Computed example of a mutant assay.
Amino acid sequence: MTASTDREPAGYRPADRQDPEGVAGRLAGEDSSREDVLTIAQEQAHVSVERRETGGVRVRVVTDEGPVLYPVALEAETVEVTRHPVEREVEAVPGPREEGDVTIIPVVEERAVLVTRLFVVEEIHIRRTRVTETVEVPVTLRRQRAVVEQLEPGAAESGPGEG
């Protein structure tokens, strides 16, 4: 009788192998009259985890500042004031009016005739001109970036500013 070197557990018998000496039957207790001794080998594995420091990383956030020319649209408005004589009699004081981009403000005076009458003496015309200009204004912008440093074993315990 020979022992198997495959190290199979006791009672293991694959369907495709033959058991010429009836070892499987003796293990199951079918033939207990024979005093044959069968040596069974058993292997055991033990797995353990060992923590070892192999290094570390330090992450810093750095803020960079830099001037940037930022385009800005500036808008300016100028007015042109002109006087226009009218000399027209009116029944009531007229209000300001707009004609296109011109605002017209009537100037009225009372004149003594046998009766009092209103005359528009002049009109003041105000014309608005709008100018838009794009200029570049310097602006300081901030941007953050992360710096990752690889540390050697034992250096991970030091705090910021050390080492």
Score class of each variant (00 low, 15 high):
Glu136Asn: 09
Ala92Arg: 11
Val86Leu: 13
Val81Tyr: 00
Glu80Trp: 00
Glu99Ala: 04
Val137His: 10
Glu99Tyr: 09
Arg117Thr: 12
Gly100Gln: 07
Leu118Gly: 04
Glu99Ser: 04
Leu118Ile: 05
Arg127Phe: 11
Asp101Thr: 07
Pro138Tyr: 00
Pro106Gln: 02
Gly100Thr: 01
Glu136Ser: 09
Thr140Asp: 03
Glu133Gly: 05
Ile105Lys: 11
Val86His: 07
Glu109His: 10
Pro94Cys: 03
Val107Arg: 15
Pro138Ala: 01
Val107Met: 09
Glu110Leu: 10
Ile124Trp: 08
Glu136Pro: 01
Pro138Met: 05
Arg130Glu: 14
Thr82Val: 13
Glu87Ala: 08
Thr82Tyr: 00
Pro106His: 03
Val90Met: 01
Ile124Arg: 13
Glu123Ser: 15
Thr132Ser: 13
Pro96Arg: 00
Arg117Ala: 13
Glu109Lys: 05
Gly100Val: 01
Arg97Phe: 13
Pro96Ile: 05
Pro138Thr: 13
Val93Phe: 01
Glu123Asp: 15
Thr140Cys: 07
Phe119Arg: 15
Arg130Lys: 09
Glu133Val: 12
His125Glu: 11
Val90Phe: 03
Val81Ala: 01
Val107Gln: 11
Ile105Asn: 06
Pro138Cys: 11
Thr116His: 05
Arg117Trp: 12
Glu89Leu: 08
Asp101Gly: 10
Arg88Phe: 03
His84Ala: 10
Ile104Trp: 10
Thr116Phe: 08
Ala92Tyr: 00
Glu122Asn: 10
Phe119Glu: 15
Val121Glu: 13
Arg130Thr: 12
Val137Thr: 14
Thr116Ser: 09
Thr103Lys: 12
Ala92Trp: 04
Val108Glu: 03
Glu109Trp: 10
Glu91Val: 07
Glu91Thr: 12
Val108His: 07
Glu133Lys: 10
Val115Lys: 00
Thr116Trp: 02
Pro138Ser: 06
Val93Ala: 05
Ile126Gln: 14
Glu133Arg: 13
Glu122Arg: 09
Glu123Pro: 06
Val113Thr: 08
Ala112Lys: 13
Val90Ile: 07
Arg83Tyr: 04
Glu98Asp: 14
Glu80Ile: 12
Glu80His: 09
Glu110Gln: 08
Ala92Thr: 15
Arg97Tyr: 15
Arg127Leu: 15
Glu98Leu: 05
Thr140Phe: 06
Glu89Ile: 00
Thr116Val: 08
Val135Asn: 02
Asp101Glu: 14
Val102Asn: 02
Pro138Trp: 05
